[in-house]
Design a protein around this nucleic acid. Sequence first.
RNA 1: GGCCAUUUAGCUCAGUUGGUAGAGCGCCACGUUCACAUCGUGGAAGUCACUGGUUCGAGUCCAGUAAUGGCCACCA
Length: 728
Amino acid sequence: MDKVYQHQETEGKWSSFWEKQGYFTPEINPKKKPFTIIMPPPNANGELHVGHALFVTLQDILTRYHRMKGNSALWLPGADHAGIQTQVVYERILEKQGKTRYDLGRNEFYAQVYDFTLKNKEVMEDQLRRLGASCDWSREKFTLDPAISKAVYLTFKKLYDDGLAYRGERMINWCPRCTTALSDAEIVHQEKEATLWFIRYPLIQETEKAGQCVPLKEKFIVVATTRPETMLGDTAVAVNPDDKRYKNLIGCKAYVPLISREIPIIADNSVDKKFGTGAVKVTPAHDPTDFEISERHNLPKIQIIGFDSKVTAEGKRYAGLKFNEARRQILEDLKKEGFLEKEKPYLHSVGRCERCNDVVEPLISLQWFIKMKPLATLAIRAVKEGKIKLLPRRFEKVYYQWMENLRDWCVSRQIWWGHQLPVWYCGTKGLSDLQRRLNDIAETPGCGEVIVAAEKPSECPKCQNAKLIQDPDTFDTWFSSGQWPFTTLGWPKQTSDFQYFYPTSVMETGYDIFFLWVTRMIVLGLYCTGQVPFQTVYLHGIVRDAKGQKMSKSKGNVINPLTVADQYGADAVRMALVFNTTPGNDQNLGEDKIRGMRNFTNKIWNIARFVIDFKPDSYETGITKTLQAEDKVILEELKKTQEKVTKSLENFRFSEAAQTLYQFIWHQFADIYIEKAKSRRAETQAILEHVLKVSMELLHPFMPYVTEEIWQKLPHQGKSIMVAPWPK
RNA sequence: GGCCAUUUAGCUCAGUUGGUAGAGCGCCACGUUCACAUCGUGGAAGUCACUGGUUCGAGUCCAGUAAUGGCCACCA
């Protein structure tokens, strides 16, 4: 044995050995208890980062532990097409070639992105293997696999038939760069220095009801806004009904300056008396609150900013201008005509597209939605009844809050990369103008019937027209990944996998996608299968750099897990990622820590050298000799370690288990026992071998490679430590 | 505006039934024949953010304060 542990020479070897032996593929055995983890599918648009390495480590620990315990342990890997994110990534690649997706056209673009994701997927698979992931490649899935897609279509049809999926004109978040609607969960709010403009809306004396309306002294009602250009779409001014300043004006009318539209002054409780002037301009087509006010008061909704961010024809003389140019022009005109009373700096938050960072525009649009109230009720109950446990527990509170305040989920996206909606229209009549324009669809006749079906219908059931047009939109990527825990197991077919492995045991993922993903899996899992998708949710934190800064390419502080795995060994990287960490909290990872764990692997290696390289003529193979005090102590400590590690793992306390093993192996076994054993070498050999073997078995889930390498050199009947029984 | 987390040795962090403070890294001294210098032995180092309370006893439970970070929300 070498003096220094050479991870390069062992890690690749064992990884392929395990896979060839079929150890990653569990058997469906009714006598065994299943243990299932569905891997959060990495987005197939890049390489693995250190966050992936963390989930690989935690999930592999659980899988290896339960496999050794004798369960049928399935860890099912996969990859996510990652709709909008991948589309944005690929469009950036095209941009460098001076192209847009429109230059390629929908089919060619889809083909190229498909190719791109498959290549990334392969790279990621190798990287997962490299990190020691013992997942079952024979069951690997991709979100765009035909069977998975079909399940997704069926779910949508089921929702539609149950009245839970509907198409409607609602206020959505529009990303002008991605040219698509987004759900609320995909919006990132950011503080921004802005200006609050105070604009005078001239009052109109109501002649018929003379005397009822008492105009203000200045004959204006002043409103405050951060977006003056939206005044083009104002259809009311709202005040709080209890606001004494404006009480006499309720029911009166005012002019929108510059365009001279006559609008009512109305009372609505949503208006905050203390904000600005206490009077707010109402732009129903471009603000969610205003939209709701307009619904309550039956106000018209005038869209004045189009999907192209330009002012529409409704904007009269400002039509055709980009919204920001229109803003400048309008401010200039307001000033010139004396309608701008004052301005003041104001800090407020703007919504941005999570993927491309463009400012989103609230717009009314015809989209598909999922009704969330009834689904959320199921989801809340599942957690309340303890059918799903969230770790750490504190996430239950935010879970309930989120579920209780859900708005309907907009699931249609005007992007090309993803599952196209299983909706067909008889002729182009059913398509929105937006859809026709974005996809350059020529008009074809038809009765306008809307058909939702898992497969393309041959003709319109109403008028027998065979020229049906599929909805060009694609699903929110989280709609398909929200069904991942059961579509991967064959649902809706009652496959043996589904029956045996579902509901899954643990969902292990980052808290950063808790709302985007975990909540949706719970909702859709309960709805589709009638069972919880998983029993325990373990949420890990973000891996930051050594100083606690978020890793990013631009900062240059990224730790590439594969690079450090090559340098220090995958075992060291894995151990560093669980050592001294807690669920739900971020952790800092520096190279020092990984180096320290590399030293630990080397320590283990040298313990093994000491134990294994000893070649006496003969020695007792069993632990039968009268035991000395130190022998009793180490065996007792080993027993305690075994019990503690088992208990820690049962309770998802990975760090505690890792520290227990580290302390035992290094400081009790090596520093104390081995030192003492040196003076009575031959009679301790059996104990040394035993303690080493059990230590390796306990440590195996954490550091699979070095433990296998050493275990193989020890006397035993087994073929691999991976399938050795968990020490009792 | 609401909610949550964090605050423990120079640094990064563990500490789950409340019982004399722990780890890794770093630091100091010594030690290279006999598994390992990717090492060993020994050592210095903390009034566990602050204030009050419960308790025989609190880093650990309760109330409040402060600082930092995060999440959620329709702040015009």
